[in-house]
Amino acid sequence: MEIQEIIKPENLVYQKTPLLNDDVMHYCPGCSHGVVHKLLAELIEEMDLQEKTIGVAPVGCSVFAYNYIDIDWQEAAHGRAPAVATGIARINPDNFVFTYQGDGDLASIGTAEIMHACNRGENILVIFINNGIYGMTGGQMAPTTLEGMVTSTTPNGRNVDLNGYPMKITNLIAQLPGTSYVTRQSVHTAAAVRKCKRSIKKAIQNVLDKKGTSFVEVVSTCNSGWKMTPVDSNKWMEENMIPYYPLGDMKDTIKGEHSDR
């Protein structure tokens, strides 16, 4: 069959969701952010939530997330997205509010805000991109940087005596009674992307059902910061990040109920 015979509207099986606009993303080639943005946009479209959704962008590489998905957005100060989302969601309980935060934003400067928003069980979705590095400022150590991992502020590798230990903040979040669904996913293979999408969908549904805070960590790559090709980054992540940050659901309940595993 000739290619031109295949490329027909009736044979279309995969295309860009209309909620993602035509602006070319500013991310480096192969960056996980683009995939997660796409999943969010697809789900907001598929679940018909455009008019209800307010996104809260962080400070970090995804500071410009608001440029790409066609919904109303607010840009938060570094680490404060969960407080901003709390304000929006409390005063507009009919809206679907999510934050999109990186590891520096969520697990370092914004630790108090994320802990307390989750502990109150705010009806929000938190997307947590963990690539173990500060991407935007040039590849410095993040709270989630692995032991021995080289960054621009740990040029000889993270020394836990000097810098402390890589923080498994999602495990802490799962302990909080305010959270309903806490999971750790990745987007490094097609199968992982599909699984991650199912998780985010479930998380969104939980928020709509007012079950409490839903928290989806996405173990991600930063090939520029890690100084590897995108494909090598995915492999390095599989070999190094995922053993320390194992994938899977950590908690699936409704807020106030203790069924964390």
């Binding site: 607010q74 938060a76 404060r80 709390t86 929006i88 409390r90 507009n92 307390h116």
Partner: peptide
Amino acid sequence: VVLQAESEVAAINMVYGAAATGKKV
């Protein structure tokens, strides 16, 4: 809505979020 925040930092950012929705906070 009345909410006791975890800090002044959080409180003002809750105001920032809620004010962005066009309401009186």
